[in-house]
Design a protein around this nucleic acid. Sequence first.
DNA 1: ACAGCCGATTGACTCAGATCAAATTTGAGT
DNA 2: ACTCAAATTTGATCTGAGTCAATCGGCTGT
Lengths: 237, 237
Amino acid sequence: MKPSVVTIEPNGHFCDDCAVRGAAVCSSLDAAELREFEHLGRRVHFGSGETVFSEEEITTSFYNVLEGVMRLYKLLPDGRRQIVGFALPGDFLGMNLSGRHNFSADAIGAVTVCQFAKASFSRFIEDRPQLLRRINELAIRELSQARDHMVLLGRRSADEKVATFLLGWRERLVTLKGLSDTVSLPMSRQDIADYLGLTIETVSRTFTKLERQGVIEIIHGGISLLDPARVEAMAAA
Amino acid sequence: MKPSVVTIEPNGHFCDDCAVRGAAVCSSLDAAELREFEHLGRRVHFGSGETVFSEEEITTSFYNVLEGVMRLYKLLPDGRRQIVGFALPGDFLGMNLSGRHNFSADAIGAVTVCQFAKASFSRFIEDRPQLLRRINELAIRELSQARDHMVLLGRRSADEKVATFLLGWRERLVTLKGLSDTVSLPMSRQDIADYLGLTIETVSRTFTKLERQGVIEIIHGGISLLDPARVEAMAAA
DNA sequence: ACAGCCGATTGACTCAGATCAAATTTGAGT
DNA sequence: ACTCAAATTTGATCTGAGTCAATCGGCTGT
């Protein structure tokens, strides 16, 4: 979906009340740096389904997710889609070598990002190795996750994929909402399918099967883990 | 396979004649830094099939591949294997956050690496943002490749996987051997299968099919692209 | 409340790729 | 050259997940 109404807040001192101040790239900055830093970014809002950036575009900005969930994906020429990840508050997007984004990103529900112009952000990093080190850490963590996901895509069965996804997603929500057996799933079944390398029908059938086995309960906007241990057993193979 | 005979050359001034001096992480260092740097590393040889490091191990070293090919892989508890990449001369291995390697690496044929103790390497980086920037670049490039590979694993057919692999491998060999329609494949069929998320039988059948179609020729230790354009068409989907 | 729409579920059937099972080729060691 | 083991190829069959095709259910707007 194309962006329709994008709201940009006026610049100002807003890092103070930023939810991800301690989590994101910002965590590597001291108070003085943070004051300087906040003038570089501006908060931008996106509505549900709006595209924040797309694959083929020249990179002009970096993004720090503040609120909401985004799907990150690549498309094949014939329309097949692979979701390479979901971005949550605290995630940092826009790093690349080619000068182009190598995936597209759109909002799942309402999203707020902190957007930085590429040039001024790069200049800011220049003499702050601490920030560069932080960004490097984030890249290495993502690389590790990407490798785990390759194993899932290449070598796991549909049941294992779904079980692993539910546990992994629950884990990602821990820092945002605390650990809970009730897992909200803001993304569609199609999104889950495209993340796991399955079809929507297989995802749906697997959910139903798990529910009939009494392992999960499908609730509005998510699932509830009735028997986490059994889900873990399914995921482990 | 366990390491049997690992030959370690005595330390010394060897960066001068290092094949990857201009390519690897070293390319970010000036002559003076390189002189200091070479005292940190030592060349280590591994025989065919030997394990350089494994997944669960605590990381004690970083590695710069000098000669040969390595397979990088993860295993599931039941033995299923996913190869997450192949390492070639110039590749840098060992970055991680957890303090543990998150994949295993073994030699395909004879391999020489430049091995750095983690502690001294980290200290050397400390006040050399240039080197950190270089390492960050390498991480970002790998991340981009990892995402491409996710698309392949999750959304491409066996034919597309094999065709994409042949072209991608040929491309990786360009910087080492120049562009050629003759592509050497040092890894086994099983390795290729585990890289593409297929079985050895499917890889073998696909090779044979491509050969019967006159698109490739299976030669000793590799293949020859008889009709590169047609392989590209198969890969693009 | 109702109509219409979109996402999700369910069922019937198909098929790409896996599995099982031999050959066949290759290669290292004698 | 000869033997044995391992890697690869080939064939026959099976099956997990995909495809095609209806429903079903939950919102939205009237």
